[in-house]
């Protein structure tokens, strides 16, 4: 690509117009992609009586950070944050270790029935029993309303295992043979040689698994009714829907607002301020890690593309 740009031919008027439009288009689409996040953030740090009416549109006004302090006092929110963090950490670790291990094991020609078991795993990517039978399975395994329903079904992910296996096949087998001659067992080889070697691919898997766990919503919806196990995503969803009814309640009783409340309207919590602040808390970890890990995301999909 770089070579091509350096050797660029002379620009014709058509080229200039094309370039301007091209830059403008991508600028506009980028704006559309990031403005909603910006809009959310400026609303959470603006005066709450202004944000409630939608008066904060382009820049923050009456800046304060009380929303973030108040929100932590909300019933159960700290607990939900803990659930989200726990499932992300535990789930990601489990997925990464299992993907690395299985990817390595399926490169071992000596394994009894290797081809059969590999297919046994791969084929599960292409069928699905459907949500009710899976729900019944979780129930029969006594996983519903437990923390483990977030972790155990997500451990084995065939696609990740393909990625690791493909990656390891590009590593010379002589490495393993040399270690075997030195008397290393298969587990030693995995932990001492394979795991450090596959850091790039495992990092990619880790970041996808972590985002998946953090964003997961459907498993809670289907398998969990215990409020103590609600992750942030689910709580946010309930807040949005409650905010709906809260808003109409407030509208119906608008004549009742007392002077005491009017005094600090700017920092009194409203359905809008709660909803938006929780949203920012939910998206914040993604925004935080995203710039650093973006290259892993790209790498991940490229490795996937090679496999097709």
């Amino acid at each position: 690509m770089a070579i091509r740009n350096k050797n660029a031919i002379k620009m014709t008027p058509n080229d200039v117009i094309f370039n301007i439009l091209n830059y403008l288009f991508f600028g506009l689409f980028t704006l559309i992609c990031i403005y909603p996040f910006y809009y959310l953030i400026i609303n959470t740090i603006s005066a709450n009586d202004l944000s409630k009416n939608g008066d904060i549109m382009f820049y923050p006004r009456g800046i304060h950070f009380k929303n973030y302090i108040d929100i932590l006092k909300l019933n159960g929110l700290a607990n939900s944050a803990l659930v989200s963090v726990a499932r992300t950490v535990v789930g990601t670790s489990a997925t990464v270790l299992a993907s690395g291990f299985l990817g390595f094991m399926f490169t071992q020609n000596k394994m009894w029935g290797r081809k059969f078991w590999y297919r046994f795993m791969i084929i599960t990517m292409y069928f699905n029993a459907g949500i009710i039978p899976v729900y019944m399975t979780m129930k029969n395994l006594h996983l519903t309303n437990t923390f483990w329903v977030y972790i155990i079904p997500a451990i084995v992910q065939p696609f990740n295992i393909i990625l690791v296996k493909t990656f390891l096949e590009s590593i010379p087998a002589s490495l393993q043979e040399a270690a075997e001659i030195d008397g290393a067992g298969v587990l030693t080889i995995f932990f001492k040689i394979i795991l450090p070697l596959s850091t790039p691919i495992l990092a990619t898997i880790a970041i996808f698994a972590a985002v998946g766990q953090w964003n997961s919503f459907q498993d809670t919806l289907l398998y969990v009714t215990d409020q103590k196990l609600y992750p942030l995503q689910y709580v946010l969803y309930t807040y949005i829907n409650q905010a709906n009814s809260l808003a109409s309640l407030i509208k119906n009783s608008s004549g009742l607002s007392g002077e005491a409340i009017a005094a600090n309207l700017a920092t009194t919590q409203t359905p809008v301020s709660i909803r938006m602040t929780v949203s920012v808390i939910v998206v914040f970890p993604i925004l935080l890690v995203y710039p650093f890990f973006q290259r892993y995301f790209v790498k991940g999909i490229m490795i996937g593309a090679v496999k097709g």
Binding site: Y39, L236, V272, V282
Partner: peptide, 12 residues
């Protein structure tokens, strides 16, 4: 970002 968050953005 999750669809829940997309919905939250859409709602806002």
């Amino acid at each position: 970002i999750s669809w829940v968050l997309v919905y939250s953005l859409a709602y806002s």
